[in-house]
């Protein structure tokens, strides 16, 4: 379990890293290395050059009116513990705390998790549910990719070889926002067998006016479930009838492994229940 031979360069800034990537078709960016290194040890990944971006200055969190901008090298542990994230992106905060174990979260980065594009990972699911974006840079400049356009398949994205994720953009949660990430795995810290990320916004009357949801574990990419959960729109509470309907609809309409579809339905019901409860708490705190 030793990696195949590879070269390594530690870059001081983004242009350097892009240049290094451009110069070697087998190059791969490394930040936290929590997914890449095990794959290399098993020789399932065989990069010829590792481009280390830990020093290029891509970590940090800034809130810009209704958008939160998170540097690609920001560690999961920071997302989990940062009070700003807890306030403006509670779904991201909860999901970050569900990734692996503290040691993994201390090293792993948001950008790394997104471009690794593991279909059972938490953060890609959050990006789809929240309708977020990634800002990527190459020698040709920057472009912004919407979550639904980023993931194309198992461990596969629309990123070009010489593109580096610089930032992740997520909407700032409203005053009546409620969210929940519910997943099931055989053991704490495992990759989820199935999971649901869900965020709602409510109006002053408590009616759900916006909803974003995605599920992991069912397909080779995080699955946008917002349409399947449309019944939640306009509701003022998570009634038992609503929750049962959600589970039934999702179990019936989701393709793939019926066991996982069953779990996703149940987890979606739980996510809706918790999102309403948290929205109630947030509204009460704001009042």
């Amino acid at each position: 379990m030793k990696p195949a031979p590879f070269d390594y360069v530690r870059c001081a800034n983004v242009p350097e890293a892009i240049a290094a990537l451009s110069g070697d078709e087998g190059a791969k960016v490394i930040a936290g290395g929590q997914s890449l290194v095990p794959l290399m040890a098993m020789r399932l990944a065989r990069p010829t050059l590792l481009v280390d971006v830990n020093d290029v200055g891509l970590d940090g969190i800034t809130v810009e009116r209704d958008v939160i901008r998170i540097g690609a090298c920001t560690r999961h542990r920071r997302l989990e513990r940062d009070p700003v994230i807890a306030r403006v992106a509670p779904l991201l905060q909860e999901a970050a705390g569900l990734i692996g174990y503290p040691a993994i979260r201390t090293r792993g980065t948001i950008g790394g998790s997104l471009v690794h594009a593991d279909p059972v990972a938490e953060l890609p699911t959050v990006l789809v549910a929240a309708g977020g974006f990634v800002v990527v840079r190459s020698g040709a400049g920057t472009r912004v990719i919407a979550a639904v356009d980023l993931f194309t398949g198992f461990l596969d994205t629309t990123l070009e070889h010489d593109e580096i994720v610089e930032d992740v953009l997520l909407p700032v949660a409203g005053t009546r926002h409620g969210s929940s990430f519910c997943e099931w795995s055989p053991r704490e810290g495992d990759f989820a067998t199935a999971g649901v990320a869900l965020a709602i916004e409510r109006d002053d009357d408590g009616r759900c006016v916006a909803l974003g949801a995605a599920a992991c574990g069912l397909a080779s990419v995080p699955l946008d479930c917002s349409t399947l959960l449309a019944a939640v729109l306009g509701e003022t509470s998570a009634s038992g009838a609503l929750l049962r309907q959600i589970a039934r609809v999702m179990r019936a309409d989701l393709a793939g492994d019926p066991d996982r579809a069953d779990l996703v339905g149940l987890l979606a019901a739980r996510a809706v229940h918790r999102a309403f409860a948290r929205s109630d708490e947030r509204s009460a705190a704001a009042a």
Partner: peptide, 24 residues
Amino acid sequence: HAHYLRRAIRAAGYTPDASAFASR
């Protein structure tokens, strides 16, 4: 294992209760 029990429970005709599950 949970996944085996889940299947056995479903095969025995049990319908999951999403509402009870959601509030657990």
